[in-house]
């Protein structure tokens, strides 16, 4: 817990952020460029799906991020509620729009991939449906966070919701899978994870890392911004008191 609490001090956190940020940003740019290069030039076209398989290199990492960011929000919420860690609230708040953005991307690129593969923009496939529900969970979380006059209360309520939602995610996933096998759609594209060819796996992994780093960069900047906002609020209050 000690490492964890060492960064509870906003100033220490800011200092660390400022030194780390340029490096992480550089790494993000490099991995993104490398991932894009591999996605377009070194990876082959799929023998069944042709060039459309290249959508996978943004779609799958976006879907990974959708779940990863939601888990991070749940983890931050637990820290915020139990240990009252001052940065945890900010991290949860800063993560929500990023996660919602990635979830939206997973859905939109999924539709763009589905149209040529399934012949429809949307099918009630188990994965797509779960991601859609996850998107609703994000929307609810963000709406609740901003629904109160008192930002503190909004953060705390959203933290409870995030934890409840996180406990429900496996239940939702299970029920949607179950529902889907019962009502199997006519044509299903098989996309088995582990059997994927290395020439396709590598660009996927590099893009996955790039997306995670991107999340880290935006998250750090947003937390920094939130910290400054807190300081501004304090100053403004002091000015009002003086006047």
């Amino acid at each position: 817990m000690s490492v964890f609490h060492r960064f509870a001090n906003p100033n220490r956190f800011l200092k660390l952020t400022n030194t780390v940020l340029p490096w992480v940003s550089g790494l993000t740019a490099i991995s993104l460029l490398a991932g894009l290069y591999m996605a377009f030039f070194t990876s082959p076209a799929d023998y069944q799906q042709g060039e459309s398989v290249r959508i996978m290199y943004v779609h799958v990492p976006a879907a990974w991020m959708a779940m990863f960011v939601y888990s991070s929000i749940a983890f931050a919420s637990i820290c915020a509620l139990i240990w009252r860690h001052p940065l945890a609230d900010l991290a949860a708040k800063a993560s929500a729009p990023i996660g919602a953005g990635f979830t939206f991307l997973a859905l939109a690129t999924g539709a763009l991939w589905g149209k040529p593969m399934w012949g429809a923009w949307w099918v009630w496939d188990a994965r797509l449906t779960s991601v859609l529900i996850l998107f609703f969970l994000y929307l609810g979380h963000m709406a609740l966070m901003n629904a109160f006059e008192d930002q503190e209360r909004g953060n705390r309520a959203a933290a409870v919701l995030a934890i409840v939602g996180f406990i429900n995610v496996p239940i939702i996933k299970f029920s949607v899978d179950w529902w889907n096998t019962l009502h199997q759609p006519a044509s299903v594209m098989r996309m088995d994870g582990p059997s994927i060819d290395p020439s396709m796996l590598w660009p996927l992994l590099v893009m996955g890392v790039a997306f995670k780093l991107f999340y880290l960069v935006v998250l750090l900047i947003r937390i920094k911004s939130e910290l400054i906002e807190a300081k501004l609020r304090k100053y403004r209050r002091a000015l009002v008191d003086n006047a």
């Binding site: 529900i133 609703f136 969970l137 929307l139 609810g140 709406a143 609740l144 629904a147 109160f148 006059e149 309520a157 919701l161 409840v164 939602g165 429900n168 239940i171 939702i172 299970f174 029920s175 949607v176």
Partner: peptide
């Protein structure tokens, strides 16, 4: 909350799906 009545369906419906 502001708009509490509109908020409840948004929070609850995803959790009702199972």
């Amino acid at each position: 909350a502001r708009r509490g009545g509109v908020l409840i369906p948004l929070l609850v419906l995803p959790l009702y799906i199972p």
